[in-house]
Design a protein around this nucleic acid. Structure first.
Lengths: 220, 220
DNA sequence: AAAATCCAATTTGAATGCAAAACTGGCTAT
DNA sequence: ATAGCCAGTTTTGCATTCAAATTGGATTTT
């Protein structure tokens, strides 16, 4: 197994909640599960710690990072900035084919909204946001976006919405697609920021932060 | 030596150019120099690779990353976005004392400009930009900023300027301080973007990218 | 009985050792 | 003379090993 693969596997376990936030990560157990020795696993853990997904406690091992309310606020704030930037750049650089692709995803999303299928709705939603990032044509931006969104992914794409909030989100997405089709960078940037600001409020109100001080179960 | 210290030491060697861009990094040599064994060094290299400062070639070791023109452009573009965001947030959150601190650094910078002391000028310049980031009060933002600026630091704070460019930069900094003092977030955001756009043009014109395909000398 | 202390057992952090892959230089064949 | 190839050496990647730190619990002390 390649280094990047190990990092990817452990990252997936963290993002999927297979290793819950705050859980200690006993190296030996994970090694056994991944069928590798401690050396490459420890390399992966240090990388994930640099990404903010793992917290290293010197001489006391590592644990899955936990997000406070402040962390969540900060991450969303930066995410707003990154998406706003991406929106502006995307309007300058996106191709007609890519716009059509986003439009299709948008239509599918609206369909899922009509069917009250939250899971599929979120899948399309995420696809659209990521397509806008990709359309900015800036790998550095994409990389940072991935770093930031990884940490708030579960809060962002799992939190249930009130009918009122959901309707508003769909409306905002109409405006997003519209701005993109008109290649209105400034407009897209603004609507994306508002959209994410609303999402942040929603997530914070839902109390999604992972601040429980109690000891979590270890990874199964 | 602690893990973070190893990462820091190697990162410093990369940023200082002690290990020049493109140079191969023989693990044994670095181990000897740092007086550590290969295991912790390799952990540090993987972290630095995740940061984009080191390039890992599977089974063929690692080398100091080299920036192409495109990389430089992308990094500056993102840096613009981050500083613009920080500027807006800073105007909402900065204290009077912090503004006074920036004003003092600005005055010192102008003095160094008058003395044609580029090195000291750049030092104050960098201090100001970092103070604005810090004033945004968002550690996630600060972290990403550090990631991005580390990679363009040498291009940004070493490139010589024409008298004309230098005068313009000072003028822009007057506007930056002014917007900050008026707590004009939108204005600060705009002037910061323009300021960095100009810097980027300058750096790219100076041909600062590290694209030489020839084999570099190894770390001394 | 509660608190502090000490000791065994576990776990982490780092060095070493070993197998596999890549580079070097010299040789052969065309 | 040059291109291709092969053995020897070096370097990487990972498993193992060893020392140091931590944890939990039993024992002792107040």
């Amino acid at each position: 197994m390649l280094h990047e693969e190990v990092v990817g596997r452990v990252r997936a376990m963290l993002l999927d909640g297979e290793i819950p936030p705050g859980a200690r990560i006993p190296e030996r157990d994970l090694c056994e599960k991944l069928q590798i020795s401690r050396t490459p696993l420890r390399e992966a853990l240090k990388v994930l710690a640099a990404e903010g997904l793992v917290q290293l406690l010197p001489n006391r091992g590592s644990r899955a990072a936990r997000l406070t309310d402040k962390d969540m606020r900060d991450l969303f704030e930066v995410c707003q900035g990154l998406e706003a930037l991406a929106g502006e750049l995307a309007c300058e650089r996106i191709t007609d084919a890519e716009i059509a692709d986003v439009a299709a995803a948008h239509a599918a999303m609206v369909r899922h909204y009509g069917e009250h299928d939250l899971l599929q709705y979120y899948r399309c939603n995420r696809y659209i946001h990521e397509a806008i990032i990709a359309a900015a044509g800036n790998p550095v931006l994409s990389g940072l976006y991935e770093l930031v969104t990884a940490r708030i992914r579960r809060a962002r794409y799992v939190t249930p919405m009130t009918p009122r909030r959901w309707a508003l989100a769909v409306q905002e997405h109409e405006a997003i697609l519209n701005a993109l089709q008109r290649r209105d960078g400034v407009g897209l940037s603004h609507i994306l920021r508002a959209h994410l600001r609303h999402k942040r409020e929603e997530v914070l109100q839902a109390g999604f932060a992972e601040t429980e001080p109690l000891e979590q179960a270890r990874a199964s």
